[in-house]
Amino acid sequence: MKNVMTKAWEIARKGATQFGGSIKSYFAEALKLAWAQIKAPVSVTVELVSGSRKYKSWVAEIVGTHAKFKFERNFINQFRGVELETNKVYTLEEGKVYDVNNVNTRYYATVRNGRLVELNESEVMELVA
C-alpha cells in the first residue's frame, strides 16, 4: 500500500510540474494510474530449444484438472521464432501455472515477483484444484 501512495504522489507532482496547478488536484487520477501500474501483470520470457520433429518444445497453461491426464492444458502457440529453425521464446504471465517441455526436460512453473519458479506436481495440484 505504501508503494502505491508513494507512486501516486510522484505522478501527481510530475503532473503539477508539467501542466501547472496544485499537486492535490492531480492526486485522484494519479492514484488510479499508480494502482494500474502496481496491479499490471508481470511477465517473464522463456527461451526453449526448437527441437526436432520427434522431440518438440512447447508450453501449455494449466487451467484445471483432467481425469485421464491429471491436468487440463491449453497449449500456447504465440511464440517468437520459426518452428524447427530457431529457438522459441514464450512470454509467461504472473499468476498462471505452466507445463514447460524443453525437448527432453519437462517441468511445471509459475511466475512470482517477476521470476520463473519451478513447481512440483503437488504444488500445481493445490494451485489449480
Rank of each mutant, 00 (worst) to 15 (best):
T86P: 02
S122L: 11
L31R: 14
W9T: 08
A34G: 07
E126H: 10
H66P: 00
A67S: 07
T65Y: 04
G21P: 12
N101K: 14
M5V: 15
S22C: 04
N3M: 10
N74Q: 14
V59T: 12
E61M: 11
F75D: 08
V63R: 05
V111H: 00
G95Y: 00
I23P: 01
A67T: 06
Y55T: 07
V46M: 03
T86A: 07
V63N: 07
K70L: 10
E10R: 11
V44W: 01
L127A: 06
G15Q: 14
A28R: 12
M1T: 13
H66Q: 01
V100I: 15
G21E: 10
R112G: 03
R13E: 06
V128L: 08
G64A: 09
W35G: 03
E83V: 06
A30F: 03
K56M: 05
V89I: 14
V128N: 02
A129L: 11
G64S: 00
G21W: 01
V100R: 01
T110E: 04
Y108D: 00
S50W: 14
E47I: 12
R53E: 13
L127V: 08
A36P: 01
G81S: 05
V103S: 01
R112E: 15
E47L: 05
Y107H: 05
A8G: 03
K54F: 05
T6G: 05
N87H: 10
R53H: 14
F69N: 09
V46C: 04
T105Y: 14
K39Q: 12
S57Q: 02
K32V: 15
R115N: 12
A60F: 08
G51F: 00
N113E: 15
A12Y: 01
T45E: 06
E93H: 10
N87E: 06
W35A: 08
I76C: 09
V103I: 13
A16R: 13
V89G: 05
T110Y: 00
A40P: 04
W9A: 06
A129T: 15
D99R: 11
E118K: 15
F79M: 01
I23S: 05
Y108C: 01
K7D: 07
R13P: 01
K56V: 12
L116E: 07
L31M: 11
R73M: 10
R80M: 13
F19C: 08
V89C: 09
A8N: 06
N101T: 12
R115T: 09
K56S: 11
F71N: 05
F79S: 00
T65E: 09
A40Y: 08
A16D: 10
G20P: 04
N101P: 03
A40M: 05
K56P: 02
K39P: 02
T65F: 08
I76D: 07
G21D: 10
